[in-house]
Design a protein around this nucleic acid. Structure first.
Length: 432
DNA sequence: TCTGGGGTCCTAGGACCC
DNA sequence: TCTGGGGTCCTAGGACCC
């Protein structure tokens, strides 16, 4: 059996833990640069605030409504998630963290005789809430797709006391008959529209199709979902392979026009990619830079360009990845456009310990130097915060008025961000 | 004026090889 | 008139997830 543990409105709940005034209110959290709505409280959902709504349209669309708006605070959400996950890890032998707000737990079959999943789930949800402040909903079922279904019921109906179990055929069919096909894990908007047009409205309707017709219309991935809904466990998530590509991309608060303006954020993205590679114990063979204009501005010339540079040998250090990214930028930069967004993508990853055997002709001493430098950078930045130590090319020239050099991160808008309650000593809540 | 970020998997079709 | 057979690898595009 699997248990899916899902944080309720994760980002909003993180904020409410430290700002209880937000309880019971319509609350939304915005994306980077305060661009659009990425999380909503149930009250905001009830008002009809759609996900992805551009922030500037919020006041137009919902005049006179009291909606609390917050910038996203990923430092806080990441830390709160780690707290929740550590409790889950202690409660089950096998855990797979699926996203910042979800984890699948595998429940040991051998203990079923003594094990009541319903009581176990209710107890776990209550403990997570009491210890971290985070409300979670738990679904227990023989497959991951059914566990997802169960968790939605646990979330929707308070009667379940935060845990819904689907453990026999009668319950499975009953649940699926009440479950819209569009809400099934693995069925996206496109497929849902097609199915609904064919009169398939619930998950139960879908399970009544033949395996063959599902396979023909939706390929092997659709068939897996179909089998999972029938109670056959066939989606494996453990042993996730090394990431094949790692991407860091951002929109700019203001459009950029010169090569120099783009070089600063791209240096920062490159170093971020390098750090992610090192975290995975990987090295990359290719570095791609991607720049694009603002597609919403019909009045401006549009362009979207990318260029890939092959590294002489697999790399994961800030200097090597950054140098390649700037080389790629030189190759794709064009004058006469207003660039709104850029990305660095590192790909062709190999495990870092394969380096020695496969690439004997590289300058080993230089490589060692980069490795040591990166290790120091990781240590400093972990302790004192991201980008405490960074390459000079990731900084804008010193501002003559303030005497300060700034980074790309300094330019990102987050006007309504909450304090770093759990990770910064100066931000710890004072009780007066 | 203002519109997010980061991944995975699958398939079809073309290039290429013998 | 007639134009093989079988395989791999790569890429682009679509669909999905959070």
């Amino acid at each position: 059996m699997y248990a899916l543990v899902d944080c309720d409105n994760c980002y909003v709940s993180c904020e409410r833990v430290f700002n209880p005034r937000l309880e019971g209110k319509a609350v939304v959290v915005l994306s980077n640069n305060d661009g659009c709505v990425v999380a909503r409280s149930p009250e905001a959902k009830a008002l009809g605030v759609p996900e992805g709504l551009p922030f500037y349209q919020l006041a137009e669309r919902f005049p006179g409504k009291e909606i609390h708006v917050l910038s996203s605070n990923y430092t806080l959400y990441g830390d709160m998630s780690a707290r929740v996950m550590s409790l889950l890890r202690a409660s089950a032998p096998d855990i797979f963290i699926y996203s910042i707000d979800e984890a699948f737990l595998t429940l040991p079959e051998s203990e079923y005789v003594y094990f009541n999943p319903k009581t176990w789930g209710e107890t776990l949800a209550a403990k997570v809430k009491r210890w971290t402040g985070m409300p979670v909903s738990i679904g227990v079922a023989p497959t991951k797709t059914l566990a997802k279904v169960a968790s939605k019921f646990a979330k929707r109906y308070p009667g379940y006391r935060k845990c819904c179990v689907i453990d026999n055929d009668e319950r499975r069919k009953k649940a699926l008959s009440l479950f819209p096909i569009a809400d099934v894990w693995g069925i996206g908007r496109r497929t849902a529209n097609r199915l609904e047009a064919a009169g398939i409205r619930t998950a139960l309707d879908f399970t009544r199709l033949s395996a063959e017709s599902v396979r023909n219309a939706m390929t092997i991935t659709g068939l897996r979902t179909w089998m999972e809904l029938h109670g056959r466990d066939c989606i494996t998530l453990d042993h996730l392979p090394r990431k094949q590509a790692i991407c860091t991309s951002r929109s700019f608060p203001k459009m950029q026009t010169t090569r120099e303006e783009l070089a600063v954020p791209l240096s920062s993205f490159a170093a971020r990619c390098a750090a992610k590679l090192r975290h995975e114990h990987s090295m990359a063979q290719y570095v791609t830079v991607f720049i694009s204009t603002n597609p919403f501005r019909d009045d401006l010339a549009q362009s979207s360009i990318n260029h890939t540079v092959a590294l002489p040998a697999p790399a994961s250090s800030d200097p090597e990845i950054t140098a390649a990214a700037l080389k790629a930028l030189d190759a794709c930069f064009r004058e006469g456009f207003q660039w709104k967004r850029a990305a660095v993508i590192v790909s062709g990853t190999v495990p870092e310990d394969e380096l020695q055997t496969s690439f004997l002709d590289i300058p080993v001493e230089l490589k060692m130097k980069h490795t040591k430098l990166s290790a120091v950078a990781d240590k400093v930045n972990k302790r004192l915060g991201d980008e405490t130590l960074l390459l000079a090319c990731a900084m804008r020239a010193t501002d003559l008025e303030t005497g300060k050099a700034t980074t790309f991160r300094d330019s990102i808008l987050h006007a309504r961000r909450s304090p770093f309650y759990t990770t910064e000593i100066r931000d710890i809540i004072e009780v007066l």
